[in-house]
């Protein structure tokens, strides 16, 4: 299987951001923040194809991309990342140099905007709350109620329509403020998802 360079870049970039906060990173965390980054790209109106790789749900309802898994294995096998403890890794000097190289390429510049907003949300919201919120967005919430492994964010799915509807109202709510930092709508959305789930739990 050909390894997608976008998945390699995303794994390195997200890994470095999580590592700077939590000392190392796991594949689960990379998959999760790659999915959040993809959602933020959709929020800004990019088509799903912009992301270059897709996600399915695991049997436990988490987002999973085979391209990220391949990139994860590839980076470990060629020494760009090394294991810290079982299931966790950190970047090597080689891995860091590779990020620096990729960042010089124009092709990844727009991508960084979404990866950055997803990872920087960690500076504002504890990681457990981010996980809780994203597990309650319409697509993952619906995916957890079905048994079959299937593509997430499928444009024909009602759950994806519900997600776009949420993004539309969020854009409208924040329109007057004209935030040029994507992190701000991301924070509002994450906070709103958590509040909505608290309201639902209390009913």
């Amino acid at each position: 299987m050909e390894i997608k360079v976008e998945a390699i870049f995303d794994t390195l970039y997200i890994g470095s951001k999580i590592e700077s906060r939590l000392d190392d990173f796991s594949q689960y965390e990379i998959q999760f923040f790659a999915y959040l980054s993809c959602l933020l790209s959709l929020y800004e109106g990019n088509p799903l194809s912009f992301w270059e790789y897709s996600f399915v749900k695991t049997s436990l309802g988490s987002p999973y991309s085979v391209d990220i898994e391949e990139a994860w294995r590839f980076l470990k096998s060629k020494g760009s990342a090394e294991q810290t403890t079982e299931g966790f890794s950190k970047l090597t000097d080689k891995g860091r140099s590779e990020i620096d190289f990729y960042l010089t390429l124009h092709a990844f510049r727009q991508r960084v905007r979404y990866l950055d907003a997803a990872c920087k949300s960690l500076s504002f919201i504890p990681v457990g709350y981010i996980k809780q919120a994203i597990n309650n967005e319409p697509v993952l919430r619906t995916a957890r109620t079905t048994v079959h492994r299937r593509f997430l964010l499928d444009e024909s799915s009602p759950a994806t329509s519900a997600l776009h509807q949420q993004f539309g109202t969020l854009r409208e709510a924040l329109r007057e403020e004209s935030y040029d930092d994507l992190l701000l709508p991301a924070i509002v959305w994450i906070e709103a998802l958590n509040r909505q789930s608290q309201i639902q739990e209390s009913l």
Partner: peptide, 20 residues
Amino acid sequence: KQIAFYKDVANDLWSILIWT
């Protein structure tokens, strides 16, 4: 209702306060 809800959430956030 959803727009009003997002506005309420935004108004409570310290990140939005600092931006404003």
